[in-house]
Design a protein around this nucleic acid. Sequence first.
DNA 1: TCTCTCTGATCAGTATAGCAAACATATGTC
DNA 2: GACATATGTTTGCTATACTGATCAGAGAGA
Lengths: 196, 196
Amino acid sequence: MSKAHNDSTHWRDFEKNDITHSAAHYLMAVDALRDEFGYARVTDVAEMLEVSRGAASMSISQLKKRGWITEDPHRFLLLTDEGKTMARLVEQNFRILTKFFEEVLGMSSEVAMSDACKMEHLMSLETGRRLVWLMRYILSDEGRAAKIHSVMASFRNGCESAEHCPLCEGGECLTPKGEACEFHAHSEKRKLQIEH
Amino acid sequence: MSKAHNDSTHWRDFEKNDITHSAAHYLMAVDALRDEFGYARVTDVAEMLEVSRGAASMSISQLKKRGWITEDPHRFLLLTDEGKTMARLVEQNFRILTKFFEEVLGMSSEVAMSDACKMEHLMSLETGRRLVWLMRYILSDEGRAAKIHSVMASFRNGCESAEHCPLCEGGECLTPKGEACEFHAHSEKRKLQIEH
DNA sequence: TCTCTCTGATCAGTATAGCAAACATATGTC
DNA sequence: GACATATGTTTGCTATACTGATCAGAGAGA
């Protein structure tokens, strides 16, 4: 039984991520509220995130235990240095992903932000860094960016030929369903990669 | 109070995603086991995913209720058409992301697969499709891919000048911490985007 | 037939993450 | 000082997703 193809990356590492989606948003809310109003209270965070005060109270007390949130002398919520680092990291990932989706992939602002929000806390620092490098190259020249966008647009109809599809080579057809790559529809069953 | 900057994409849509991370892996496990052995039982799925039989039993019964898993005449687990579609979609996202991280961003196989596994079930069809287009362009020419990799490598030291950083324009510095873009370290506080 | 193992389901308990409601403690106004 | 509002916590409940233990049923073998 194929059990651990890749022991360093088990599928359940997802749960053991440094920070959960909701924790990230609590931290960012405290950060943003302090920036905007100079203080942050449980009620303000609850209102901003549209959760009940009870839920905010519970979550924030957990984040206090974890050392990411404290209180200032006026008993207002305050991010610790570590909390600030986590919040900024997730925010940065969000900005990087949004920019990439919008300006490189040419997606609408809505879909770009929706996808970015879901992935922001899961993308590693490494990936974010390299995405920035890629964008620095692609977006540094308007002509280059325009070329990429126009070529990408021409790909909307899928692979026109098996011989000239650089992606499907190697046995895995990557063209999503609905725009089937008919030359590779019969591509052999993928390898067992359940555990990734 | 900034409450709903973007009603179409609330931060908690994360929870309302079509499919959860674990559900995706249960479906893929059934699919993979049937491919490899011709059948799939609760115990096999549990063993493959390294969870207890109890957990697998509970999760699979939920997936049956949702109409993604049924049983064949021999009472072995079987994906419904809808279940198959979901499983293939997530697998495809995984392959797209892994290929992008490895071959475009130049990441190690480990980090590429780890990040891809975490995001596979969250990336929209739209994003996956466009990533494929981008890769078809970039990877269709070895020279082009090599150029991108070498230019990206030259960016490892951050922005060398505020005037020539195409990314930081517009007030948000995207260069991750640790390789600070000193010209923009003072970049104004980001806009409130807690709700994305 | 009796027993043993395999299989799958169920139950108690854990952890996250939410809601609604009740509650306690402020704070502020009349 | 008394009442009313605001704020934060606690409690009971839900849902997902696990562990570990227990339990019921189906087969296989002696």
